[in-house]
Design a protein around this nucleic acid. Sequence first.
DNA 1: TCCTATGTTCAAAGTTTATTGAACTATTGT
DNA 2: ACAATAGTTCAATAAACTTTGAACATAGGA
Lengths: 127, 127
Amino acid sequence: MIPDMSRTPLHPTREQIELPMVLDCLSDPIRLAIVYQLAQQERVSSELRCGDFSGLGAKSNLAYHFAKLRECGLTQTRIVGTSRMTRLRREDLDARFPGLLDAVINSAARDADRLQLVPECDVAGVD
Amino acid sequence: MIPDMSRTPLHPTREQIELPMVLDCLSDPIRLAIVYQLAQQERVSSELRCGDFSGLGAKSNLAYHFAKLRECGLTQTRIVGTSRMTRLRREDLDARFPGLLDAVINSAARDADRLQLVPECDVAGVD
DNA sequence: TCCTATGTTCAAAGTTTATTGAACTATTGT
DNA sequence: ACAATAGTTCAATAAACTTTGAACATAGGA
């Protein structure tokens, strides 16, 4: 049987990633929280499931924000069974906009309270 | 006669500057071009008049974008005669979000063509 | 096969944003 | 006082964005 390629999420190439779209994507509190959590996760494994962010809103709204993150080039999504594993496109972003992602994440970390971000220890999850 | 304080533009304090608002402000191509041009200008004098940006759009639209830049804390505006002199709030931004402004400006510079930014030599202006 | 879990897609509603031109305010210079 | 300059404010419009719930699709397990 022919695999359903229409279910493979579309990602921009590295060169197609645009600065204004990335900044706009990061300016939404929910998407910033997702990116922040993905950045914390980078230390442990590199990927998280969409479902790991259910604290941030309704399912369909998260799907909307994950699509935006993917379409602007901030994240890469891979289908595993019924789940989607998402990770930051750190290499592409660092190549395209050196220092930007780290500056945003560090700035977010400093304002974690104000931005209502999850504390680091909660991110890695439970076994 | 009592000075008209209502004409003094309002600026957030350093602590009131919020990351999402700053990122959103920088995500607009016109505002990014303004910030980029102000950053180039930092090497020469520190300020520019609103009118120096007339290439970027209509007067009332620029007033709208300058107000946004000021209200989110990216710029400081000072009234001189009938003009408004605007400069980047670099110290406040660097204190609040270390490395962010430089990363954005450097990233914009790399994409200057794509973002239709003015070349550096045109920025300092004519006598 | 049926049921469940994960996530997408769609339509609708409400909100916010960008843009324009006209009217307005304030300042400078004659 | 008058005119010109610099910029703001207002009203209106069109476009884009966020959010919600319901319906849908896919994969895995009993």
